[in-house]
C-alpha cells in the first residue's frame, strides 16, 4: 500500500471468500474518508459477506483490508476500535433497556463512562427513544430495535460506520431521521458504507456507489460515472438513466451464468 492509501477510510484488495460456492471473488474496493458509499447488488451478490469481512466477523480466504491505514487482518482490535457495524437484524438484548444496552456497548469500546452516559442520552433523544430509555427492548417494534442498534453503533463515535440495510423496518419518519443522521455524520467528516435495496436512497445520498454481483465489483463511482460505464456496456440503448436503470443494466450484463 502506498503512502497515499494510508489516508483512505477503507481499502480492500483481492478479497476472496468461498463458502459452499464462491461468495466474494477478487474484490477491490476503496472508500474515501468523509464519503457515503453505497454498496448495491442483487440478493446473494456478496454485499453482506463483504461487509462482514470488513467488520471482522468473517475471515477472508485471501486479500487485504485496510481501515484508516490499519491492517484489519493483522491488527483486528485496532481496526474494530474505529469501526462500527450495524446489520439488518438488530444486535440487541431484549431483556436490557436501551440505556443498559448502550452502557454495555460503550463498555465494549472502552468509552469513558461519564462521556458514554452523556452521549447515550443525546443519541436516544435524537432518535426519539428518550421516553423508552428505561423500558426493556422486548416489546419494541423492529424499527425501534433498529434505532437502538444504531445508537449502539454510534456510541463510540466511529470513524467508519458500516450499515447493512439500515432502513429495513423503519417507518417513513424514522427512515428520514436515520437518513438525516447519516448525512449529518458524513457532513461532519465521518465515513459511512451502507447496503440498501432502496435505490432511491443510494441515488440521493451516496457520494459514490459500488455495484456488486456474483461476488465481483461490476462498477464503482458517482452516479454519472456509473451511467457512463453502463452506456459503454449497452445501457441507455432504449433504457432510462436513473440508478435503477443503470443497476438493472449492469447486473443483467454482469450476472454470473
Amino acid at each position: 500500500m502506498g503512502a497515499a492509501s494510508v489516508t483512505e477510510a477503507l481499502i480492500v484488495r483481492g478479497l476472496d471468500k468461498t463458502f459452499a460456492k464462491p461468495a466474494v471473488r477478487e474484490l477491490d474496493l476503496t472508500v474515501h474518508p468523509g464519503e457515503l458509499y453505497a454498496l448495491l447488488g442483487p440478493n446473494g451478490a456478496g454485499k453482506t459477506t463483504t461487509l462482514r469481512m470488513v467488520a471482522g466477523l468473517t475471515k477472508p480466504d485471501k486479500g487485504s483490508i485496510s481501515i484508516f491505514g490499519i491492517d484489519a487482518l493483522a491488527d483486528p482490535a485496532a481496526a474494530k476500535a474505529v469501526t462500527a457495524w450495524a446489520p439488518d437484524e438488530a444486535m440487541i438484548y431484549d431483556r436490557l433497556t436501551p440505556l443498559e444496552y448502550l452502557e454495555f456497548v460503550a463498555g465494549l469500546w472502552n468509552v469513558e463512562p461519564r462521556h458514554a452516559k452523556a452521549r447515550a442520552g443525546e443519541l436516544l433523544e435524537t432518535l426519539g427513544l428518550a421516553s423508552e430509555a428505561r423500558r426493556r427492548c422486548e416489546g419494541f417494534s423492529r424499527g425501534m430495535k433498529q434505532k437502538v442498534a444504531l445508537a449502539g453503533a454510534l456510541i463510540h463515535d466511529p470513524r467508519l460506520l458500516i450499515l447493512d440495510e439500515p432502513l429495513t423496518g423503519l417507518d417513513a419518519a424514522s427512515a428520514r431521521l436515520v437518513k438525516d443522521m447519516l448525512q449529518a455524520r458524513v457532513d461532519a467528516g465521518g465515513t459511512v458504507i451502507l447496503t440498501t435495496h432502496i435505490l432511491e436512497v443510494a441515488e440521493r445520498m451516496a457520494d459514490r456507489i459500488g455495484i456488486i454481483a456474483g461476488g465481483r465489483l461490476l462498477a464503482e463511482g458517482t452516479l454519472d460515472a456509473l451511467r457512463a460505464h453502463a452506456g459503454k456496456t449497452g445501457a441507455g440503448q432504449g433504457g432510462g438513466d436513473t440508478l435503477e436503470d443503470v443497476f438493472l443494466q449492469l447486473t443483467a450484463d454482469g450476472a454470473p451464468a
Partner: peptide, 8 residues
C-alpha cells in the same frame, strides 16, 4: 456478532 465486532 456484537462482541465479535468490538475491540474487546
Amino acid at each position: 456478532d456484537l462482541l465479535a465486532v468490538s475491540p474487546a
